[in-house]
């Protein structure tokens, strides 16, 4: 499996390149045009990322995030979610790198093969950095009214957090 995934990208690029060349595409020109678009896209989303990162960093550094964690703790108990994974639940939708740090921290204190460690790993693998996705996708096209996108995405996250604990209990039986 590991072999397949590491060969995937080079083989895919090779395939596209060969197919393009055989079909008479000016592959170099095409690549440059696409890459140009990539650069403008990044500059288009940059202001939105700045806005989002400032809010997230302030929220975290001020201690507001810890406060939120304390408020939500009683809600999680009945769902079988251990309170040790709470920081991960709070950080996961906001920042990919910060949540990786939190996961590493949970795994080293609780142990990667403990109930807590497995729940945290499952949560991390089955959810995304929702606010980052939302910021980037909406920012790139300049959409201002997001309608139901945020509630639906957040519901998917909440489902992921709850089901993660259930799935670990069901599969590993602890």
């Amino acid at each position: 499996m590991r072999l397949i995934s590491s060969w995937l990208v080079p083989l895919f690029i090779f395939f596209v390149l060969t197919a393009g060349y055989i079909r008479g595409v000016k592959v170099y020109d095409a690549f440059v045009d696409g890459a140009k678009e990539g650069i403008t896209t990044v500059f288009k989303i940059m202001p939105y990322l700045i806005a989002m990162f400032v809010a997230i960093e302030v929220f975290r550094a001020s201690g507001a995030m810890d406060m939120l964690a304390r408020f939500t703790a009683p809600v999680l108990k009945p769902l079988g979610i251990p309170s040790e994974v709470l920081p991960l639940i709070i950080v996961r939708p906001l920042s990919g790198s910060a949540s990786l740090g939190v996961l590493g921290n949970i795994l080293s204190t609780a142990g990667p093969d403990s109930y807590i460690g497995r729940v945290a790993s499952t949560m991390m693998g089955s959810t995304e950095t929702t606010f980052y996705v939302l910021t980037v996708y909406l920012g790139a096209v300049g959409v201002k009214k997001s309608r139901h996108a945020l509630p639906a995405a957040v519901m998917a996250d909440i489902t992921g957090f709850i089901v993660a604990a259930m799935a670990v209990r069901w599969v590993f039986g602890n």
């Binding site: 596209v16 393009g20 592959v27 095409a30 690549f31 696409g34 890459a35 990539g38 896209t41």
Partner: peptide, 18 residues
């Protein structure tokens, strides 16, 4: 991100034209 975006949208453009 610029590098990854440039690479993938470049490959995508070739795939599109092919």
């Amino acid at each position: 991100l610029i590098g990854a975006y440039g690479l993938w949208l470049g490959i995508m453009e070739i795939a599109q034209r092919a």
